[in-house]
Structure formats: structure tokens, C-alpha cells
């Protein structure tokens, strides 16, 4: 939990232009996550967008997404992530990069 707090503190420094109720990444099937042994997205995502939930699946909240693409690469064997860029102008807006 302390790790979660830390990454949120990091993300708090970033500028985001949130596209309300239009997440650019989606989990395709809850069941596929539930049957996934390692759920590597939950510890590979640099913004901790993915977390294990009570049903044994994974919950995705894209608000802090850094648009790196790691989750898509990690999940390619399962192919359970629909990954797109946000609409033009939305999402992470790096001041420094």
C-alpha cells in the first residue's frame, strides 16, 4: 500500500488533460484477467493503473496513464487489453519530458 501512495504522489506532479468518461485503454474480458496467473500488469504499469480486485480480476483506472504501452506488451500473449491513444490533445501532457 505504501508503494501505491508513493506513485500517486509522483503522478500528482504531472499535468493531465482528462477525457472524461472516455478511457483510451480497456480490459476486454474480466474472465481472462481472473484466469491470469501473474497479472503482471498490476506490477509492471509505471503509473499503477491496474490493481487486483475482489473478484480475482483486475481493475483499470486510466487517469494516471503515462501512455507508455507497457501493459499492451506485457499482455500480448493474452491479448486482453484494447490499447489506443487518447483523442488528440488529451491525456498526459509532459511539461519537460
Amino acid at each position: 500500500m505504501s508503494i501505491m501512495v508513493k506513485v500517486e504522489e509522483k503522478l500528482y506532479q504531472n499535468r493531465y488533460i482528462v477525457d472524461e468518461s472516455r478511457p483510451h485503454i480497456q480490459i476486454k474480458s474480466e474472465e481472462v484477467c481472473q484466469s491470469c496467473d501473474r497479472q503482471a500488469c498490476t506490477f509492471c504499469c509505471p503509473a499503477a493503473c491496474y490493481s487486483k480486485n475482489e473478484t480475482g480480476g483486475v481493475t483499470l483506472v486510466t487517469d494516471g496513464c503515462l501512455e507508455c504501452g507497457t501493459c499492451r506488451v506485457v499482455c500480448q500473449d493474452k491479448g486482453n487489453i484494447a490499447w489506443d491513444y487518447p483523442r488528440g490533445g488529451y491525456g498526459i501532457s509532459y511539461k519537460f519530458g
Binding site: I3, K6, V7, K10, L11, Q13, N14, F43, C44, C45, P46, A47, A48, L66, C68, T70, Y94, K95, F96, G97
Partner: peptide, 30 residues
């Protein structure tokens, strides 16, 4: 997780004195 690895790097005894007192303004991943 990658952010844990970064935190540990920042706390490493030979790195910490170089960055001490600096203020973090952005966190990025690529």
C-alpha cells in the same frame, strides 16, 4: 514495480547525496 526501483535508486547511498534537497516536478515513463 518500476517506480519502486526508481525510489530505491534515489535512496542508494552513493546517489542520494547528489540529489538531496531537490524538488520533483515530473514523473515520466517511456
Amino acid at each position: 514495480p518500476p517506480y519502486k526501483m526508481l525510489e530505491d535508486l534515489k535512496k542508494h547511498p552513493v546517489i542520494r547525496p547528489l540529489i538531496e534537497g531537490a524538488e520533483m516536478k515530473e514523473y515520466a515513463a517511456h
